[in-house]
Simulated assay, not measured.
Amino acid sequence: MKIRLERDVLAEAVQWAARSLPTRPSVPILAGLLVTASESGVTLSSFDYETSAQINVAAQVSDEGQALVSGRLLADISRSLPNKPVDLVSDETRMEITCGSARFTLQALPVGDYPSLPDMPEATGTVPSEAFAQAVGQVVVAAGRDELLPVFTGVRLEIEGDTLSLLATDRYRMALKELNWNPGSPQISTAALVPARVLADTARSMSAGDEITLSLSSGGAGDGIIGFEGHGAGGVRQTTTRLLDGEFPKVRHIMNTQSALNVRVSTAELISAAKRVALVAERNTSLRMLIGDGSITLEAATGDQAQASEAIEATIEPVGGGEPALDAAGFNPTYLLDALGVIDTPYVNFAFTAPGKPCLLTGLNEIDGDSLGDYRHVIMLMRLPS
């Protein structure tokens, strides 16, 4: 194999393909990055039996062929090369990398031992890339990180005709985003539980093109896979990942809980105030929101060592015109800031039901406008000391 390509193209492609390589592979061969040269260009591939990544980039190919080398080492090398064209030459035992006066030699791994990448399933539909990246970013903040509870580490994709819904929860918060997409069949109705980490990386890295193609092998979990194809810097990218197994909790109904009290406030002002007040919040204690007449006050403390409070103008609306359903609420500071950070509207509405019950956050374009229902974020309130 003998190829030449631009340094930035190589560096970007290798970084992307190698990003999901396992730190401690179950078998050493899975630490390799497969480089395939053909008349159509160069393809870089990685696979760990769960997730595959493949990117095709333009290159001058003098001799076609394949080579398998350490992915992380190739990533480190490509990132450090001078800004000049890069020549890659390989045989069965080694790969030589030349860039200007810099020269590296890597031991080649046996290509024949590398597992075959899964085929992309048949295309299910397409979604605008920027809208999809934004939707995924808004939802994954609510996904769990505990690998001992894998069902909570996923994002549930629900497809009903031309509506694509993304839903995630870690049991203490949940997020739902609905957006329009272009299904292959208008009658399609299916769902899949996708690892949140893979989904986030994929959506973010494929936003250079106009759209992303989703390919779902089955509506089930466990043995099914989902594929994504889109454009990133340098070339066409494909990712497949195995669907998570297990029954996703039925939490959609919580998004429709009837509000007893609405609190509307500037998103930016609330984020700034919450960040300041949270500086003195003791671990595992709440950031308190005191609800007054025309304002809210955030409070937090670390015992007698430090206290903080800050008031912000707000619109307070008891539903039905009666007395407010509650005068204080306790939030996990991290959960609150995570939610506010992905709400992309100037104002946010807090829909409270009762003390200790879930609180629904939705966006507002105007402080006296209607809540936008395409993105909903629920936070379980912390109990306040009586």
Score class of each variant (00 low, 15 high):
250 K>S: 14
148 L>P: 00
131 A>K: 14
247 E>L: 06
247 E>S: 13
379 I>E: 06
5 L>K: 02
299 E>K: 13
210 D>M: 07
22 P>T: 13
12 E>Y: 01
177 K>W: 02
13 A>N: 08
125 G>L: 10
33 L>T: 06
121 P>G: 11
365 N>T: 15
262 N>S: 15
105 T>W: 07
185 S>Q: 11
338 D>Y: 08
334 T>R: 13
245 D>F: 01
99 C>W: 09
312 I>S: 06
274 A>N: 03
278 A>N: 11
87 D>H: 11
345 T>M: 02
369 G>H: 10
363 G>A: 09
381 L>C: 09
134 Q>S: 11
103 R>L: 12
232 G>C: 01
268 A>R: 14
315 T>A: 14
70 S>N: 15
247 E>P: 00
187 Q>I: 10
243 L>P: 00
364 L>W: 05
161 G>L: 09
31 A>K: 05
271 I>E: 08
83 N>A: 15
166 L>G: 03
197 R>F: 10
123 A>T: 14
260 A>D: 12
191 A>Q: 14
326 L>C: 07
33 L>A: 06
311 A>S: 15
180 N>W: 03
171 R>T: 15
249 P>E: 11
61 V>P: 01
347 Y>C: 11
100 G>D: 12
114 Y>Q: 09
185 S>G: 04
229 E>V: 15
243 L>F: 00
302 T>E: 07
72 R>W: 12
386 S>G: 12
320 G>Q: 07
225 I>E: 03
386 S>A: 14
253 H>S: 15
209 G>V: 02
225 I>G: 03
71 G>M: 06
77 I>L: 11
239 T>Y: 05
174 M>Q: 13
288 R>W: 01
50 E>Q: 14
53 A>L: 14
23 T>N: 14
274 A>S: 13
61 V>S: 10
257 T>C: 02
303 G>S: 07
285 T>I: 05
16 W>H: 13
348 V>I: 11
38 S>M: 01
285 T>D: 07
173 R>L: 07
39 E>D: 12
180 N>M: 06
193 L>T: 06
298 L>E: 04
212 I>F: 01
156 R>D: 00
230 G>K: 00
24 R>A: 11
47 F>G: 07
32 G>E: 08
298 L>Q: 01
317 E>G: 06
103 R>D: 11
136 V>E: 02
173 R>A: 08
137 G>A: 14
147 E>C: 09
233 A>E: 12
105 T>A: 14
240 T>D: 05
132 F>Y: 04
323 E>C: 00
49 Y>P: 00
41 G>M: 01
57 V>T: 03
89 V>F: 10
144 G>Q: 02
98 T>S: 15
301 A>N: 06
19 R>D: 12
179 L>G: 02
209 G>T: 04
128 P>D: 12
97 I>C: 11
222 G>F: 00
289 M>Q: 06
161 G>E: 09
261 L>Q: 08
72 R>H: 13
273 A>H: 04
354 A>I: 06
177 K>E: 03
31 A>T: 04
121 P>D: 10
88 L>G: 09
169 T>M: 03
121 P>W: 07
51 T>G: 05
346 P>A: 09
141 V>M: 12
